[in-house]
């Protein structure tokens, strides 16, 4: 068992899609998750959606964390669709940063499991990601057992 409660450790992608570059938050969250024993794939900002999908596939990521501080959250639903189309619908998605209250429902509906605004306590973020990763892992393991038989 590892520090994050999963073996092998939860694998989390921390990235930014769209146009904005403010990455102070994504760096800090990446460091938090690492210190909590997770394996964090970290990218610089401005990833295209197809690039994120390819990355999620190749790295066998459990959770995708999208940081958005300047309206890039508006294309998160598009990312969620793209993941589903690639057969990666089971992968967890969380969003961190600035999302106006009235725009949260659309994200949650698109499959985002939580939105962490500024000031979210570190432990809340870690606990949520760990639980989400564990759930995703269960789905993956079930799939694997099916194939193995």
């Amino acid at each position: 068992m590892t520090a994050c409660g999963l073996n092998p450790p939860a694998r989390v992608l921390v990235t930014k899609i769209g146009l904005d570059g403010h990455d102070r938050g994504s760096r800090i969250v990446a460091a938090y998750l690492r210190d909590a024993g997770m394996e964090v794939i970290y990218t610089p900002p401005w990833q295209s959606i197809p690039a994120v999908v390819k990355l999620v596939l190749e790295e066998d990521v459990d959770v995708v964390g999208i940081s958005s501080l300047a309206t890039d959250h508006l294309i998160v639903p598009k990312l969620a669709d793209a993941l589903r189309e690639a057969g990666l619908g089971h992968v967890g998605i969380i969003v961190g940063g600035i999302v106006p209250d009235d725009e949260c429902p659309a994200l949650l509906q698109a499959g985002v499991s939580a939105i962490f605004g500024p000031g979210s306590p570190r432990d809340d973020i870690i606990a949520h990601v760990a639980a989400l990763a564990a759930k995703v892992r269960d789905v993956k393991n079930a799939e694997f057992r099916e194939i193995a038989q």
């Binding site: 300047a70 508006l74 598009k78």
Partner: peptide, 21 residues
């Protein structure tokens, strides 16, 4: 717009992001 900052014209980026910032 952030698309301009990234060096893109408006026909190169996702419509919902245009003019938001």
């Amino acid at each position: 717009c952030n698309s301009v900052f990234r060096g893109n014209d408006c026909d190169e980026v996702d419509l919902p992001l245009l003019g938001t910032c």
